[in-house]
Amino acid sequence: MQRTTEPAEVWTSASGAPERLVWRARRFRVDDMPTPLVGPADWWLAFAGSDTGAGRAPLAITGWRFQASSPEGETHVFDVGHDGTHWHVLRVFD
């Protein structure tokens, strides 16, 4: 596993799931079902120190994990995230 926070261009479906990726000037096409990565919803952080009762913090999609391949046959599993403005490759699994 390689940890990174490199910029990337990601094209998504109407539902927001990644379909294509450009990373390090190479094109990749998603060739499996992307898995959402989840974490506590950003708006919940203001309440994190409060006792709000039973249960846990609401979850939101914080990124995606998917396998993608280049036209030349290079294949990786990517973790990507969006910071509100740009997409970033967070991890690469070979």
Rank of each mutant, 00 (worst) to 15 (best):
M1Q: 14
Q2S: 14
Q2K: 15
Q2C: 08
R3Q: 10
T5C: 10
T5Y: 14
E6M: 11
P7Y: 08
A8N: 08
A8I: 08
E9P: 04
V10C: 10
V10W: 04
W11G: 07
W11H: 12
W11M: 13
W11Y: 06
T12A: 13
T12D: 02
T12L: 10
A14C: 09
S15V: 11
S15P: 09
S15K: 15
G16I: 07
A17N: 12
P18R: 08
E19Q: 13
E19V: 13
L21W: 08
L21N: 05
L21D: 03
V22K: 12
V22C: 05
V22W: 05
W23Y: 13
W23L: 02
A25H: 12
A25M: 07
R27M: 06
R27L: 10
F28N: 00
R29A: 06
R29M: 05
V30C: 05
D31Y: 06
D31H: 15
D31K: 07
D32F: 06
M33Y: 09
M33A: 13
M33D: 13
P34G: 05
P34W: 07
T35Y: 06
P36N: 08
L37Y: 01
L37S: 04
V38E: 15
V38T: 15
V38Y: 11
G39P: 04
G39Q: 09
P40R: 11
A41F: 03
A41H: 14
D42L: 13
W44V: 04
L45D: 15
A46F: 10
A48Y: 07
A48N: 07
A48S: 14
G49T: 11
S50P: 05
D51A: 11
D51R: 12
D51T: 11
T52C: 15
T52S: 13
G53M: 11
G53S: 12
A54S: 14
R56N: 08
R56Y: 10
A57P: 11
P58M: 04
P58A: 05
T62Q: 09
T62M: 06
G63N: 00
W64E: 02
W64Y: 08
R65Q: 10
R65D: 01
F66V: 03
Q67P: 01
Q67T: 13
A68M: 01
A68W: 00
S69N: 02
S70R: 02
P71K: 01
P71G: 02
E72C: 00
E74F: 02
T75H: 00
T75E: 00
F78K: 00
F78L: 00
D79T: 03
D79H: 07
V80S: 00
G81I: 02
H82W: 13
H82F: 15
D83Q: 02
H86S: 14
H88L: 10
H88R: 13
H88M: 05
V89K: 00
L90Y: 05
V92H: 02
V92Q: 04
F93V: 09
F93L: 09
F93M: 10
F93C: 07
F93I: 11
D94M: 04
D94T: 12
D94V: 06
D94E: 12
